[in-house]
């Protein structure tokens, strides 16, 4: 199952110490996209450490994910400006519409929703980032339209469909600054 983990560990055979647990987990996540139970068991085994400890360390850090990333990644900005502009409503709307689990993944595995502190695009708050593209001045209605579009298309998001909302990230960052 955890082929990436096996390869990464095999590469370092004989030179593994417990201190390398976090770098190992990072490398496995980079290769596999997330930390599977099998990967953590493999790490525990290689480091001769109980699985509970590897799991404990992994769950301590926000950087580690425990499920594969969905086809579409939505980052909902929960920074101060977006918060004032009701971004919580957007986040909750996504939870309901996409049937998100605790870990932010939709039950069908298509979407991953992450709440982030600030996307640096405060001037177009409330803002989300969908598959790398920014969409600003959102309302729940606009968000629905965006998701309807995405689902109808079955394709990657097309910022062009929302000319008023979408701009290149660099441009937005300049504006915010």
């Amino acid at each position: 199952m955890a082929a990436g983990a096996d390869a990464i560990i095999a590469e370092r055979e004989g030179e593994l110490t417990r201190e390398q647990m976090i770098p190992l987990l990072q490398e496995i996540q980079a290769a596999e996209g997330f930390l599977s139970a099998e990967a953590m068991i493999t790490v525990a085994d290689a480091l001769e450490t109980p699985v509970s400890r590897v799991y404990g360390v992994a769950t301590f850090y926000n950087q580690f994910r425990f499920a594969p990333v969905g086809e579409h990644v939505i980052e909902v900005c929960r920074g101060t400006a977006c918060h004032v502009k009701q971004s919580l409503a957007l986040a909750q709307h996504l939870e309901r519409r996409l049937h998100l689990r605790d870990d932010g993944n939709s039950a069908d595995g298509r979407y991953t929703v992450v709440r982030v502190a600030c996307l640096g695009a405060c001037s177009i708050a409330p803002v989300i980032k969908l598959d790398g593209a920014f969409y600003g001045h959102l309302t729940t209605e606009k968000l629905d339209a965006l998701l309807d579009e995405l689902e109808a298309d079955g394709d990657a998001a097309k910022p062009d469909a929302f000319p008023s909302a979408a701009r290149a990230p660099e441009e937005q960052r300049d504006e915010a600054a």
């Binding site: 450490t49 109980p50 699985v51 509970s52 400890r53 799991y55 404990g56 769950t59 301590f60």
Partner: peptide
């Protein structure tokens, strides 16, 4: 962990 060497439970989360 340290006395029994079993390591079945640990702190998880943050």
């Amino acid at each position: 962990h340290d006395v029994q060497g079993v390591g079945a439970i640990d702190f998880t989360g943050r």
